[in-house]
C-alpha cells in the first residue's frame, strides 16, 4: 500500500496525492509505504450490489482509519456478525475484481480482523 507523506506538514495520504491539500504548492511530498493496519470507523454489509460484485454478497465494506492517520474505504473479509465499530484490522491480498471471463484480474488489499490472524 503506497501512499504519500508531506514533509512540510507531516500529514500522510492514502490514496496518494501529488499535491498536499494543507500546504498546496509549498508541500513536499514523498512516497510512503503504509503498514496496512488500522481501525474500523464505520461499516456496512452489502446485500444488494452492482453487477461486478453480485457474486460476493453479502460482503462487508468499511471506512478504515490507517494507523498513520488517513482513512480509506475497503472490504473486510469476515462474517457480518463479527463486524464492530472500533475493531482492529490487518491487510490481506485478494482479488478485487475481474473484467468478465476474458479480461484482466485486479488484485489488491482487503482487510481482515486482526484477531483472526493465524
Amino acid at each position: 500500500m503506497i501512499g504519500t507523506h508531506c514533509k512540510s506538514c507531516g500529514e500522510y495520504y492514502f490514496p496518494p496525492r501529488t499535491l498536499c491539500p494543507n500546504c498546496r504548492r509549498t508541500g513536499q511530498m514523498e512516497e510512503h509505504k503504509f503498514r496496512g493496519t488500522g481501525t474500523v470507523i464505520t461499516y456496512t454489509t452489502i446485500y444488494s450490489a452492482t453487477e461486478d460484485f453480485e457474486r460476493l454478497t453479502p460482503y462487508n465494506l468499511a471506512i478504515i482509519q490507517l494507523d498513520e492517520g488517513p482513512k480509506l474505504t475497503g472490504q473486510v473479509v469476515c462474517s457480518p456478525e463479527n463486524m464492530k465499530i472500533g475493531m482492529r484490522v490487518r491487510p490481506v491480498f485478494r482479488i478485487l475484481g475481474k473484467e468478465g471471463e476474458r479480461g484482466i484480474i485486479y488484485y489488491g488489499t482487503k482487510f481482515a480482523p486482526a484477531e483472526d490472524a493465524p
Binding site: L56, V77, I95, I105, K110
Partner: peptide
C-alpha cells in the same frame, strides 16, 4: 479458497 482468493493471492500471502 474464499471467493476472492486464487493461486496468485495465496502465493503473495505465503511469500509475505
Amino acid at each position: 479458497p474464499d471467493l476472492d482468493e486464487d493461486t496468485a493471492t495465496i502465493a503473495v500471502e505465503a511469500a509475505r
